[in-house]
Design a binder for these strands. Structure first.
Lengths: 224, 224
DNA sequence: CGGGTTATTTATCATACGAAAAATAAAGGT
DNA sequence: ACCTTTATTTTTCGTATGATAAATAACCCG
């Protein structure tokens, strides 16, 4: 109570900091990302303002409504983190598929599956936003289908050009993805202690996946 | 607006229905489960009351605070759905491990991983409740360690009595679990259309997992 | 049928929240 | 130094929300 009053009066006591609109907007956006990641999209603008050390109406100077702010958060977090070159990494047949997958999931884990990303992603899904479905479409084209294609090549069966990709094969690609994803769900959403080394986990997950996926691909897809 | 007024006046217009305390409590609890599953734990008691066709203060007659209601929801949904006999199903070596896993995940998918369960589970995790960690503890003892034990038997290596279970092995067990879990996350949280048959998916997931898991177990655990 | 018990509703409170309007002060040009 | 611009704060509004107190009516027992 006292601390709260201190903070308010601190902001009130004339030490207002005048930033350029660009800077202030970015500052609010960054603050909103970590704030909404922590407390959810229903977090209050007053508390966000307090964390930023500014007053609540200032947020409305830069974002007309709270929903506008949320949509800018989605934009900032979900588009722009995916690197198109990752698709090329997956399909680069000059290297063993195992190495490619391990390298990809190393990048993906560090650049995408952060505390902010995975929590906002879940909050958005539960809130019924369509961000998730759109992201999944992106993932299917840029990652899952390429992985299925590489699995077919590794299994030495017909390519997707000749025999269309099946639902079960897409699920096979989801399978390794799910293992990595769930690792971060446990870490950042359930907040369980995971003492396991990330790189060891990824290598192991890829090893387990690849074995089974190639076997099943062989069984289910006719030879090329 | 009109429909809302109708509903309110319907409850208001003297047609009050007097239930026994037990019935009413259960009705509120059931309504709260599907309500909170849909809109989250921050859903408002007024809207819940409206869905139940009662007034909002009535809820407070049966549950002193909203948090009490939420905790009863957790109790109802998370404890009691786990069947202790499932552990026995996993460890029943009179049948192939593949069959046991497929049967278990059939039950688990239908009895536990429902719309209500998985959404409330995620909402709870994001809200920082400790339900998830407690549930995971239960799952490790009743499911993951037994699966690791059976994988060891299938791989014909040392049993956990001689060589302790490693973190990577627990992750291997998480791996199939993650595949099934993530299937329902996509279905009930992202709400993507999944045209894939559940049983086919489970059988396939088990097949892919088992292959890799046994191979990796053989590689990492000394022979018995 | 009458009277007490209590399940349910009506009315209300205190606070919280998104949002807008008005007031203030920091910066930049001249 | 003064004046204009505008970033920021102060004040305020309307509504929503968890929760409580008082009023009402359905059921039960004699």
């Amino acid at each position: 109570m006292v601390a709260l009053k201190e903070k308010q009066s601190k902001a009130a006591a004339g030490n207002r900091q005048r930033l350029s609109p660009g800077e202030r907007e970015q500052q609010i956006l960054d603050g909103a990302i970590s704030f909404f990641a922590e407390v959810g999209l229903s977090g209050q603008t007053r508390e966000l303002a307090q964390r930023l050390g500014v007053t609540q109406p200032l947020i409305y100077r830069y974002f007309p409504t709270k929903q506008d702010l949320i949509e800018r958060v989605f934009e900032e977090v979900f588009v722009g983190r995916w690197r198109p070159e990752w698709t090329g990494l997956i399909t680069d047949r000059s290297r063993p598929l195992r190495d490619r997958l391990i390298e990809f999931y190393g990048h993906y884990s560090r650049d995408v599956l952060t505390y902010e990303w995975i929590r906002i992603y879940m909050f958005a899904g539960l809130a019924g936003e369509d961000i998730n479905r759109r992201y999944i479409d992106l993932l299917e084209d840029g990652l899952l289908v390429p992985i299925v294609t590489e699995l077919r090549a590794a299994a030495e069966v017909a390519s997707p050009d000749d025999v269309p990709v099946t639902g079960l094969e897409i699920e096979a690609a989801w399978h390794i993805h799910a293992a990595v994803f769930y690792y971060f769900v446990r870490k950042h959403i359930y907040q369980t202690k995971i003492e396991l080394d990330l790189d060891a986990f990824i290598a192991d997950a890829v090893d387990r996946t690849l074995e089974g996926a190639i076997t099943v691909t062989k069984r289910e897809v006719p030879a090329g």
